[in-house]
Structure formats: C-alpha cells, structure tokens
Nucleic acid binder design. Structure first.
Lengths: 202, 202
DNA sequence: AATTTAAGGTACGAATCGTACCTTAATCGG
DNA sequence: CCGATTAAGGTACGATTCGTACCTTAAATT
C-alpha cells in the first residue's frame, strides 16, 4: 500500500474488509449503484481489486453488502392497539424507503441481481418490508380479538406490502402517493383480514 | 448493402424496419436478452447499427419491441360461469408465461428498463397479466350476481396477479408451483371479492 | 437535374469488469 | 530464529459491446 512506510502497516483480514465495505458504502451513497465501480472502491479503500474479489465474488455482491450496511429495519414496531393504524404506519415506512434515494439503490440492486433468489432475499430487510413484521402486527390484532385467527395466514398478512412492491418494481413508479397507501389498506388489506373467518363457504 | 448489386436493392423505411425487428426477434429467441447485441442484430438483418439507432434509441427499446412481437395476449378470456375457475385459469396462464423462456426474457427486460414506467408498461400485455382482463372477469361475476358490485375495484380485481408478479420480480423464483396459484386464489382473491360488499363497517 | 434523405460501410472511444501475474509484508509453524 | 505460507499491494490487460462519428452512395423528393 502507498504512503509513508514508517507509518503505514498493511491492514489484514477484518480491518481491511471493514475499510473496503466503508468505501463501498460511501461510493454507493454518493454515486448510487450505477456509479459504484470496483476501481473506485479499491482506490478509496486504499487497496486493490484483488482484495475485494477475495471477499466478494462480484460487483453485485459488494453492492448488496454495502446497501445492507446502510439500511436497517426499524426496531420499533407500531403498536397502536388498532390494526388499521398499525398497517398504515408500517406501509408508510416501507413507502418512504422505496421513494427515497435508498429506494433507487434498491431497485438497481434488484435489477443487477438477475433474479437470483439468494441475493434478492437480502434486499428486503428495510422498514416495513419484512414479511415477519406484518405477521406480528396481524398476530397482535388476532390477540386483541380484532380479527379472527383464521386471518393469520402469511399470504394474507403480506398482501399490502406485496401490492406496494408491485408499484415500485413492476410499474416503475418513482414514488407512491399516500392516497394509494390508504387505498391498499382500506380497499384490500382490511376487508380481507376482517372478513376472513366470518365464513368461508364456497 | 453487400450482395449481388444487380439483384439487391436497398431496403428503405418499413421494409428495413421489419427486417431489423425480425432479426431481433430471432436473436432474442435463440440467445435471450443477454445474448442480444446490436452488432448481431445488424449483421443478421443485413444492415448496420446506424439504421437500428435511427429507429430505436437503445438496446433496451429494441429488446422490448422484439419481445412484443413475440408475445401476444390471449384473445379468448375464460368464461366458465364460475369466478374461481376463471381466476384460476387466468392466473395459470400468467404463471405459464412467467415460468417460460419468455418469462426470463421478460425479467431481463424489466431489469434493463431501469424502472422506466413507459418501458415497463409495454411489458405486461402477456396472457393473464393485463389489469383489464381481471376487471372483465370480475365484472362478469358481478353481472352473474356472484359478487357484490362494490367488489369491482381495480386494486381488488388485480390483487391476484399482483401477488404472482411479486413471486417472480421481487422474490426471484424461476417458477411458481400450482399450489401457490391455488393458494393466492383461495386464500386471498376469493375471500376478498366475496366479502367486500357484505359489510364495510369500521 | 440538383438536392435531400436514409441506407450501407467502417472505425473507434469509452468504460469497467474480472483475471493474471508479480512483489512484498506479515503471520504461522517447526 | 528461520523457512514456508498467505494475503496484501501493485500493475497490466483482454474482452466486450454500446453508442457515436464520419464517409459514400442509392433512392426519393423538389
């Protein structure tokens, strides 16, 4: 590595990995995924591409790792005592993320992953997007007696966030108005969860 | 253009455009979108890249045009007299498409479009994927008295196909088992449309 | 006939990924 | 301590193809 030999030691192992990841995060933040190049990351980290490729198989994998450093799921679930309020809050969180600069990075990474499930699975940990939080919120509504237990089904619990994803990934809208959020919750999600269990006769 | 000058005339206008498009269709079919290059299309069409760029702004646009030549929506809507059967048939059609080689081309084109709404909108004319057909099928159920008129809402009508799209574009699954199709229809779509209109009290 | 337009032909810059190879510092093991 | 091993640092480059530029020429238009 360049620099004053008397001062600079070679970084090895985890220290170098952190430096690379940090550089990638900075490049991703400043230039988006399109602007993220292996050359620039290596240069910024003060290393060379060999060290990067020794750790991440390709550019996409590095991009995904950097994105995950940037984004963390919100640790606090809404718990208002009312399912509609919880659902709206969760969906608004997801929407804020999709509509943000991070959302654009997310879309680019989804594209770059070439539909690889292992990679895509790593891209949905952002606020309001995890299947698990939707199950939790719906589970609480069941516990409150607000919804019948039969409504607690993974596909039912996640229908709202699936519809929101549809807006961004399939329709390519750069942002989704709050009216659509309210519509998804009031026209689809709530009718579905509230009426399941009432009767399911054919 | 090369060839016997006494025999070959320059193609102009629509004739050349058709030749280019035909060449692109063949390349897309044989090599997928990844294998589709402007050089190969030009060579195959017996022209050069200038002629292509005079008509299509970039590779993606040409890919989309070729894909649309390949794929046509099924003109016959299912009309079994039973909403569940119609919905299953429609969703199975869409699923067959997503799971086919055409589905892979579709995914690649969706990726390449970079989320541009105008391009993405051109990619969803395949069997069972158009919003309009789902509205039609649901409309017929309303007319038969199978479902209340209040259920006739665009977001409700399209929830099933949105969930299917989610499987392919967000989760990256290469194919979706029929059990998932049945689940989407029986656990989400039918409960939703059947119970909307029963009562919508808060 | 002169002008304009588009087709056909050729060439190339640019960009960056991923790989190969070499040198050298640092760690490991005997 | 010393030799062997490993990973870091450095350099170079092949490969690929997109998109653009420029030139010639056939065909259409004025």
């Amino acid at each position: 590595m360049t620099g004053d030999p008397a001062v600079r030691r070679r970084r090895r192992g985890a220290a170098l990995e952190r430096a690379i990841l940090y550089a990638a995060v900075q490049e991703l933040t400043e230039s988006g995924y399109a602007g993220l190049t292996m050359d620039k990351v290596a240069r910024r980290a003060g290393t060379n591409k060999n060290a990067i490729y020794r750790r991440w198989p390709n550019r996409t994998a590095l991009g995904v790792a950097a994105y995950r450093e940037l984004v963390s799921a919100d640790p606090q679930l809404p718990d208002t005592g009312d399912l509609r309020s919880d659902a709206l809050e969760l969906l608004r969180r997801a929407n804020r993320h999709w509509a943000s600069p991070y959302g654009e990075i997310l879309r680019d990474l989804m594209s770059s992953s070439g539909g690889a499930p292992e990679l895509l699975a790593q891209l949905h940990d952002h606020p309001g997007d995890e299947d698990a939080v939707w199950l939790t919120v719906l589970g609480r509504a069941v516990a409150r007696g607000e919804v019948h237990p039969e409504a607690l089904h993974p596909r039912v619990a996640t229908v709202a966030v699936a519809l929101l994803r549809n807006e961004y990934s399939v329709r390519g809208t750069p942002s989704t108005p709050d009216s659509v959020i309210v519509e998804i919750v009031d026209e689809v999600y709530l009718p579905l969860v509230r009426h399941r269990g009432v009767f399911t006769g054919a």
